[in-house]
Amino acid sequence: MPTSAREPLLEVRDLAAGYGKIGVLHGVQLTVGAGEAVALLGPNGAGKTTLLRAISGLLPRTGQIRFAGKDMSSAGPRDAVSAGLVHVVEGHRVFTQLTVFDNLLLAGYGMPRAARARQVEEALAFFPEIAEKRRNLAATLSGGQQQMLAVAQGLVRRPRLLMLDEPSAGLSPVLVDRVLLAAAKLREAGTAILLVEQLIEKALATADRVYALARGTIVLEARTDEADLPNRLEQAYFGQGAHAPLQS
């Protein structure tokens, strides 16, 4: 991999996964360096969410996954979380019947009590808006606030790699910027990020490097500062047969 010179934090090789008889991913290769922000793009149905689920062990899969020097190929989500590989799932699925604070405490389930309390406060510090509402039920938060809470849950364990699945879905543009800003702050603090995003320009602005996934395999890998990226992405999306004229 010429574009990732650093020692990879996450290394995925020949990954295959699917639902029942339906194979969705075939031979996916992907790396994320320590502290790197990587965007995972692709048309819908390409298998981006499936890929994140397979990496975090929420879905059975075959192939090799190495994380922080350890083999995680057959690890479940619990092992992944405790190794520092945290997956914030799509659709801001927080626990609406619990308070904001309890939601965050649960994210630190199994940690020593003192450390948990400290790190919950740290996570809340990223999002002053929901810190104010820590005693409220998560059901009373707006969609954007719920998404922030979901990201904050992901931070409680001080992950080394945070995988965010479409944090912008269903949010207004202002909120999207806020969530992505939080991601950028994390990045500065040294957390690596793997971001699945529909809004390509926003994703490209946040990430150092980009993978495009189409038809269940990686069809493109590039640095975000490379020239002509939109055109190449488009070709990757629409397949080899399509020569979409992109003249504006």
Binding site: S56, L58, P77, R78, A80, V81, S82, V86, H87, V88, V89, R93, V94, F95, T96, Q97, L98, D102, L105, L106, A107, Y109, G110, Q153, R157
Partner: peptide, 23 residues
């Protein structure tokens, strides 16, 4: 108790609970 809240969490959304690393 935190265990009790974990029960509630699993009852509401076991997928999200699993993703959070709850046993």
């Amino acid at each position: 108790t935190l265990v009790g809240r974990a029960f509630l969490a699993i009852a509401e959304d076991s997928y999200a609970a699993r993703a959070l690393g709850l046993p």
